[in-house]
């Protein structure tokens, strides 16, 4: 059988690909398979990154112009100052270049995460032990502040004062911890 891609060499790789439930028989020669990234199991051309990139592209139809470097000279393209990856490159590759990209593109990330993670934008899992104590206290303080504000709105000042004391206590503890570390 002849390779369906180059129509020249003998096809050596025969496999079935399923895209969106559609089965497709493929017959490729080694060369074309390598070009298409098809020569190892699992490394089929249609990767999660392409899928993701497709999703991301569709995400900001109105932002496309402003974030595309060549199309707009008025607005500067969004670029991560640390690794130099532009937002457009992130969209194309579907991957961040470094930790700082998360801050650099932070305003645009919530819709993306929501889409990929079933509406979630915030982490609720494991916290590194090293930062664990402090971070958990911070979370607790934030929750108490919210409660305090609710009581103030309802003019329940006695309750609010009690919570304020709790917050102070926690803040003291946190300061001591920071000093001790």
């Amino acid at each position: 059988m002849i390779c369906e891609e180059c129509q020249k060499n003998e096809a050596t790789l025969h496999f079935t690909k399923i895209i969106n439930g559609q089965k497709k028989e493929m017959h490729l020669c080694d060369e074309c398979a390598r070009d298409k990234g098809e020569h190892l199991p699992g490394s089929t051309g249609y990767s999660i990154h392409e899928l993701l990139s497709g999703l991301l592209h569709g995400d900001h139809p109105f932002d496309q112009q402003s974030s595309h470097p060549s199309s707009s000279s008025r607005r500067k393209p969004l670029v991560c100052p640390e690794c130099g990856l532009s937002y457009q490159q992130f969209i194309d590759k579907g991957r961040f270049g470094c930790v700082h990209c998360y801050e650099s593109f932070s305003l645009k990330l919530d819709p993306i995460f929501r889409r990929v993670h079933g509406g979630n934008v915030r982490h609720h899992g494991k916290v590194p032990k090293r930062t664990g104590g402090k971070m958990q206290m911070k979370r607790q303080i934030q929750q108490l502040r919210n409660q305090m504000e609710m009581h103030v709105e309802k003019e329940e000042f006695e309750e609010a004062a009690k919570i304020r004391d709790q917050i102070r206590e926690l803040e003291m503890k946190m300061e001591n911890k920071e000093g001790g570390e």
Binding site: I48, H49, L52, G94, R95, F96, G97, V99, Y102, L109, I112, F113, V116, V121, R122, H123, G125, K126, V127, P128, T131, M135, K138
Partner: peptide, 12 residues
Amino acid sequence: FDEKRGYLTSCP
């Protein structure tokens, strides 16, 4: 690690 996003990875 980021408090809001958790463990930071290359792919979202």
